[in-house]
Each structure stands twice: as C-alpha cells, then as structure tokens.
C-alpha cells in the first residue's frame, strides 16, 4: 500500500528493529514456500532415475524436456487448455455477478426477509445433498455434457457471498445516499456507485472463483461424458496417472514416467492461473479506494 506516511515515526530504534525482523521473517517465509516449488520445477525437467536417486535438488543434472513434449504432443492438452480458459473466464463473470448482485441487498439491514435468506444461505455452508442427488438435479436440468454443468452448480459459493456481504456493510453509506437522492434506483446505486468502489473485493473474488473452476476436476468427470469437452484438470489427472501406482503399474504394468510427469503437469496447470495474480495485486497496490470517499 502506498500510504504516504511521513518517515518520522519509522526512525525510532524499535521501529527499525521491527522492520529488520519483519523483512527477515517474510523473506524466510518466502524461501520456505519457494524452495519446494523450485524442486517441483527442476524435477519436471529431470529424468526418472534422477528424481529417484537425488533426495532434493534445484537443478537437474541431465536436463530433459521429453515430459513436456509428451504432454503437448497430444492435441487434447492444448484443446483442454483453451476450453478451460474459456469456461473459467465465463464462469468467473457469471459467479461474480451473481454473488455481488445477491450480496448487495443482503447487506441492507433494513430489508425485510433478509434474515431468512441469509439463514438459507448459511445452512448450505454446512449441509449439502451430496454427489448423487446433485448429479440427478444437473441431469434433470438437461445440463449434462454442457459447459453450464461446470459453472452453474458452483455459481455462488455461500462462504464468499457472506464475506462479500459483510464487505458491503463496511462501505460508507454517504455516497449511496447521495446517489439515491439524485434519483438513482437501488440497482443503479449498486451498478454505478458500489461496484466501482469494490474493485479490490471484485478482484479478490474473481480470483477465488476462477481458481475454483480452474482446479475443479470432479464436475467435468461427473457431468461431461464427451471427452472432447474435458478440461485441463481432467487431462492433467489422466496424464499423471493419478492412481498409476495402484492399478496400472502394479497389476497392469505399463511404464509411465510417473514422477517427472506429475511435476511437469503441476507446472503447466498452475502457470496460466498464476498470471492472473498480478492483475489482482495492482488493485491491492492502489489501496486507497475508500479513502477517496469523503465521509
């Protein structure tokens, strides 16, 4: 955050010490997270025998790209990647719209019936019908084998809805009031005043939703029979031989480059979504959004 505080208060020895410790701590934290990840990256370029023989390394002795070649060799992977990007983008927009539209009125404490709806929502955080009943609903809606089945059943995460709602409750009411007095409808207030004010929150939940769809492999497996419509995560699991150890290699002995493949696929499946983060961070850096509103 670029809070332009004068440096005075940071010059005290205690403050300095804190800064030094803080930097050290966070750097340590970053190191602890990044080292195993670098191993994953390095291992994805290493041979099977190197992965087996060296306990931990950050650079492979013999650098190979055959795992990646194998993955990209099959056209399925690229197709699944494109499919996933599209489904994720579309799903994210729908989810964010639905969530924010519903959260806004629920933030209005004077709205009659609000408590009932909130209770209904909170209940679904802890109770769910389960795999088969949900499948049957999706089937009855005729959504099987459509991309809608990957988006609609997850359209609103009740957990996120409640958080967005409470963010809305923290927004200063003065601007909304001004807009109302100017003759804006409630929807107008929401669309023209509240949403633009909520950019960091929108960015945050866009990320959350996007990641959820991106990482979801259960929905495509259950709802999509047409293998040409499969998403990245399904392909990923197929290529890594998620259960190769048990069924495949033991009893049915086909030699998969299991370990290296596992790591390569992690790298490929994670990178695209990682590019999303800087956009979000931009909003964090801006920071002072509500500060622009004079209370």
């Amino acid at each position: 955050m670029s809070l332009r505080r004068p440096p005075g208060e940071y010059r005290s020895p205690g403050s300095r010490l804190f800064d030094i410790l803080n930097v050290a701590l966070l750097l340590g934290l970053a190191l602890v997270t990044v080292l195993p990840l670098l191993y994953v990256l390095a291992a994805s370029f290493a041979t099977e025998s190197e992965i087996a023989s060296r306990p931990f390394f950050l650079w492979p002795r013999r650098f190979i790209t055959s795992t990646y070649e194998y993955i990209f060799e099959t056209g399925t992977f690229v197709r699944a990647l494109i499919t996933t990007i599209c489904v994720t983008a579309a799903g994210m927009v729908i989810q964010v719209l639905l969530t924010f539209t519903m959260a806004y009125p629920l933030a209005k404490r004077y709205l009659p019936g609000r408590a009932l709806v909130l209770n209904l929502v909170i209940f679904t955080i802890v109770f769910s019908g389960g795999l088969i009943p949900t499948y049957l609903v999706v089937r009855d809606l005729g959504l099987l084998d459509t991309y809608w089945a990957l988006i609609l059943p997850l359209a609103i995460n009740p957990f996120y809805l409640i958080i967005v709602k409470s963010f809305f409750q923290e927004l200063p009411q003065t601007l909304e009031e001004a807009a109302r007095i100017d003759g804006c409808s409630e929807f107008g207030v929401f669309w023209r005043i509240v949403l633009p004010l909520s950019k960091p929150i929108i960015a945050t939940f866009s990320l959350f939703y996007a990641v959820a769809i991106w990482n979801d492999y259960m929905s495509p497996l259950l709802y999509i029979d047409d293998t040409r419509k499969w998403t990245l995560q399904v392909i990923v699991r197929q290529l890594t031989g998620a259960d190769a150890e048990n069924a495949l290699s033991r009893l049915d002995s086909v030699l998969f480059p299991v370990e290296g493949m596992k790591f390569a696929v992690v790298v490929i499946a994670t990178l695209p979504i990682l590019f999303f983060y800087p956009f979000l961070q931009k909003h964090f850096a801006k920071g002072v959004l509500i500060g622009s509103v004079k209370e």
Binding site: T124, F127, G129, P133, L141, L152, P153
Partner: peptide, 10 residues
Amino acid sequence: VFKYLPMRGL
C-alpha cells in the same frame, strides 16, 4: 435449485 433440491438426498 442447486443446493436445496439435492437436499432431498439427505
């Protein structure tokens, strides 16, 4: 639709 209908499954 997606949360309460399946709750029949409970």
